[in-house]
């Protein structure tokens, strides 16, 4: 292989190379095993048991029993559906917004530099602090949002305090927080399109819509889909904002899969059941991710 060629070049024997490589990788692999593989394996193992944390002596092996009862529990199925809806809402909006803003930034219009700086702010805020800030803004009686509505003569809204509006309201906050990431990725993607190609296209008589649709977009397609992939994974397992803003409420109106999993594991202390739910969440994310990778033709080996 070409490794061999290289090693010959520096006069090292294969064995030494291999040994050195393992010595360098060893600690990393060991730590990775400890903090990644082991917990996942343990979660899968736990998910096969009927295991109530305060009574470890009563744990019972029930095979896929937990998975079967999960798929017959309406509350779980609803939270699965909600996660999907939530993901679609957030990722769609932030992709559209993110791309729009990125285009605007590349146009070098007045104030783009300032805007670029301001845009990064939400990323820099701690989610918990930002979530509390939004919770205050969303307050139906004291919040600034309802104050503005009142000024405009619109009925006060319930926002995160109402069953119908809770999930979309959380989606707004998450979109606000994550869009800057999309903007940055798209913006750098657009910048990487070489000017020569654009010039060539212009000479060939392409208008700006054609340039965008036929040239820029296809060129940044891989970047585009990688960004969507990251955001989808991130949104599917979103926890902090939902937990602080609504705790899944009112009732269970905004209970997503991650909240459901947390509640069952650390609220109800049903470790087996919670683990099974966590595994399903992971599989769910894996499936969606695969779908996006296929659709976007992302090739990680390239």
């Amino acid at each position: 292989m070409n490794n061999k060629k290289k090693s010959d070049a520096v006069g090292l024997r294969d064995r030494q190379i291999a040994r050195f490589r393992w010595a360098m990788l060893g600690p990393g692999i060991f730590v990775l095993f400890l903090i990644n593989i082991l917990p996942i394996a343990d979660t899968i193992y736990t998910s096969l048991f009927d295991y109530y944390l305060p009574m470890p002596q009563d744990q019972k092996f029930i095979g896929i029993g937990n998975y079967l009862s999960l798929f017959t529990e309406p509350r779980f199925l609803q939270s699965l559906g909600r996660t999907l809806v939530f993901m679609l809402m957030v990722v769609t909006t932030e992709t559209i917004l993110g791309f729009g803003i990125a285009l605007m930034l590349t146009s070098n219009a007045f104030g783009t530099k300032l805007f670029r700086g301001v845009l990064i702010l939400p990323i820099m805020l701690t989610p918990i602090a930002a979530a509390f800030m939004w919770r205050i803004m969303y307050s139906p009686t004291l919040g600034i949002l309802n104050y503005f509505l009142e000024v405009l003569g619109i009925e006060p809204q319930k926002w995160i305090y109402g069953a119908e509006q809770a999930l979309p309201s959380i989606a707004v906050v998450v979109t606000w927080c994550k869009t800057p990431f999309m903007v940055m990725v798209f913006y750098t993607g657009l910048l990487s399109v070489s000017d020569e190609i654009i010039e060539a296209a212009t000479i060939d008589g392409a208008n700006s819509f054609d340039i965008l649709w036929r040239i820029k977009l296809p060129l940044i397609k891989p970047v585009f889909f990688v960004a969507i992939l990251f955001q989808t994974i991130d949104t599917a397992k979103e926890f902090d904002y939902t937990q602080i803003l609504t705790r899944g409420g009112p009732g269970s109106a905004s209970e997503t899969l991650s909240i459901f999993t947390y509640l069952n594991s650390f609220g109800f202390l049903k470790m087996g059941y919670g683990s099974a739910s966590a595994i399903i969440l992971s599989v769910f994310i894996f499936l969606i991710a695969t779908l996006i990778i296929k659709a976007g033709g992302i090739d990680f080996d390239k």
Partner: peptide, 21 residues
Amino acid sequence: GPTGIENYTWYECVADFQQGK
């Protein structure tokens, strides 16, 4: 109760009462 009371914890109740609502 106030609008949105269905998701009020003590945090919102105390804030509303403190603000004379």
